[in-house]
Amino acid sequence: MIIEQTNIQDLLLLTPNVYADERGYFMESYNQKKTEVLIKEKFVQDNESVSKKNVLRGLHLQLPPFAQAKLVRVIKGSILDVAVDLRKESSTYGQHFKHVLSGENKKQIFVPAGFAHGFLSLEDDTILSYKCSEYYHAKSEVSLLWNDPDFDIDWGITDPILTEKDRLAEKFVTFENPF
């Protein structure tokens, strides 16, 4: 597995070794021993979602003490994955990273706690899977506005399919940031 540091502090891009032949392929999607030098978190929950094309989910996070680190990958289809650094002491505070993850490229993104995370589905029936370092805690969940001008994220779309929660999400300027 190749693990690369992105331009955002502590945000990692992982590319697994894929062994393909005429039968299909095999890959190890996660191995704690191989990643523990850079990823200290223990994952306690796995989630999976299916999205239609142009569905945008995010930007989501959980507040401490339930803040989650995530390891995100796409099983089928593709997404534009986005993570925003909300850690005040970070050298990349307020900056974002985006990357296309797909069932074809098999890349994964490690998103540390203290980041807002979201994605735009680029294909119908896209299946996303992600590991979390903390259990889901509904009262700690926050949504930040996906198109907040303070983040200046080019999603490549102006009218995505959103939930009401994401449509009415909080602006960064009013967010009481505990990170």
Rank of each mutant, 00 (worst) to 15 (best):
N17V: 13
S133F: 06
K33Q: 13
T158N: 12
K42Y: 12
Q9T: 02
E41F: 06
S129Q: 15
D10I: 00
D159P: 01
K52G: 12
Q5D: 14
N47M: 05
V50D: 07
F151D: 09
A138C: 12
F175E: 00
T174F: 09
P65N: 12
I3D: 07
Y136S: 12
L80Q: 12
K33G: 01
L128G: 11
I75C: 11
P160Q: 08
V100H: 05
Q62G: 10
R23F: 11
P149K: 09
V173K: 10
K131G: 11
V82N: 04
E176I: 05
E123L: 11
T174H: 10
E28C: 04
P149A: 05
I109D: 10
Q95D: 09
Y25F: 15
N54A: 13
G24H: 03
G94S: 03
L11V: 15
L145D: 04
D85A: 04
N54K: 11
S49T: 15
K165F: 09
G118A: 07
K76P: 02
F43C: 08
F172Q: 00
Y19M: 14
V82S: 07
G94W: 06
V84D: 00
D159M: 09
K76S: 15
E134N: 15
K40Y: 05
W155E: 03
E48L: 13
F115A: 02
F97Q: 04
L128C: 15
T174Q: 06
N177F: 11
L162Q: 03
G118H: 10
P160A: 04
D81S: 08
E123F: 07
V173E: 13
L80W: 10
P65G: 06
P149H: 05
L128A: 14
K40L: 14
I39D: 02
C132F: 05
F172S: 01
P160H: 10
E104G: 06
N31E: 10
D85L: 09
T163Q: 01
D124L: 11
